[in-house]
């Protein structure tokens, strides 16, 4: 699979791939092949697909704890992402990162990040470096509604606007920071935070890949032209748990009615309806075939050698002292 493309079929392929990838990954959590669980991206696929379809291969992204969709949409190999989730040496990060840290620098994926908001300044630095080198690359920071209350994100908005850097701040407002509803966490508005720094900020339907793509194209054009950052708030609904531990420990923070109605706006259905049945079925079959291969690849991969547990701790090759007798 490659980066999401901006065609009707291309967008569908990506949302479908992410949806089915996450469902397969949840199955592997249930079987114990993925340890530590995952934060499923189910329901938010249109955002990753729409944004990454507006990018070039050499653009860069940073992602979040709920990052599989971004990584897949930017073009990482699903088999290697899944192998990473399964902690195998054949994973993107050689089993050193797992679900929350998938990275593929060759594809411009500067890593998913498990600290909410922490990727924002990293993105701003990457954007500055791009401009510094004379490139018109853009950098995208994906983050959730929880991140908009992190000071470092607000500092990052300021830096990006101050220095007119080519950044897309993509806020995925899925309604909840873990269990806390956005209405009980966010004073003011999310776009208001961008506007306070003079950053053009829009709210779009995050269930529709075309709506996201349209907003992302405008923001990318602005960024490449040297006109600075943009903020896109994408309204979405998280279909599944915050984290798969919720599958066992039922949290009562969303009513069944709310979840049911939230799932009615389904990105896969919305984009799928734009394809003829035969076309959609062909893509679905391709995706299943890709994922069959990905699961087989992931589960066949070797487990990392415990003797190399601290390999790569230092890029310079420094070896730390051992913890035990030496």
């Amino acid at each position: 699979m490659a980066r999401a493309t901006d065609t009707r079929v291309g967008l569908y392929r990506t949302v479908r791939l992410i949806r089915r990838f996450e469902q397969r990954a949840v199955d592997l959590v249930d079987t114990g092949d993925i340890v530590g669980g995952i934060h499923p991206y189910t329901g938010q696929e249109a955002i990753a697909a729409g944004v990454c379809a507006a990018l070039r291969d050499d653009d860069v992204i940073t992602s979040t704890h709920r990052g599989h969709g971004h990584v897949l949409a930017k073009g990482a190999d699903p088999a290697r992402v899944l192998a990473e989730l399964a902690g195998r040496d054949t994973g993107l990060n050689r089993g050193r990162g797992g679900s929350m840290h998938a990275a593929d620098f060759a594809m411009g994926i500067l890593g998913a990040n498990a600290i909410v908001g922490a990727n924002a300044p990293i993105t701003v630095g990457a954007a500055w470096a791009a401009r510094h080198s004379g490139s018109d690359r853009v950098a995208v920071s994906f983050f959730g509604d929880g991140a908009v209350n992190q000071g470092v994100l607000l500092e990052s908005l300021n830096l990006a606007a101050l220095w007119r850097l080519p950044v897309l701040f993509v806020c995925e407002n899925n309604g909840y920071a873990t269990t806390l509803p956005v209405g009980e966490a966010v004073a003011g508005t999310i776009t208001g935070r961008g506007e306070a720094f003079g950053i053009p900020s829009v709210t779009v339907d995050g269930a529709d890949p075309v709506a996201v793509l349209t907003a992302a194209r405008t923001a990318v054009r602005r960024a490449r032209a040297g006109d600075g950052p943009s903020l896109i708030e994408c309204l979405a609904y998280r279909f599944d748990a915050h984290h798969t531990w919720e599958h066992r420990a039922r949290m009562r923070y969303r009513s069944d009615e709310e979840v049911h109605s939230g799932r009615l706006r389904d990105p896969v259905t919305i984009q799928g309806a734009r394809l003829a049945d035969a076309e959609r079925e062909r893509v679905d079959a391709e995706v299943e075939s890709t994922l069959d291969e990905a699961v087989a690849f992931a589960l066949a991969g070797p487990h990392p050698d415990p003797g190399g547990a601290l390999d790569h701790l230092y890029a310079s090759g420094l070896r730390p002292r051992q913890g035990g007798d030496h």
């Binding site: 500067l110 300044p121 990457a126 510094h132 080198s133 830096l159």
Partner: peptide, 26 residues
């Protein structure tokens, strides 16, 4: 000024910014 950069009093952002710049080859 592109190589000696004055930052606003945003220590967390400019320290994270340095990571992003370093990940990009600087």
């Amino acid at each position: 000024p592109e190589r000696v950069v004055d930052a606003p009093l945003s220590e967390q952002a400019f320290t994270g910014f340095a990571t992003g710049a370093a990940l990009s080859g600087l």
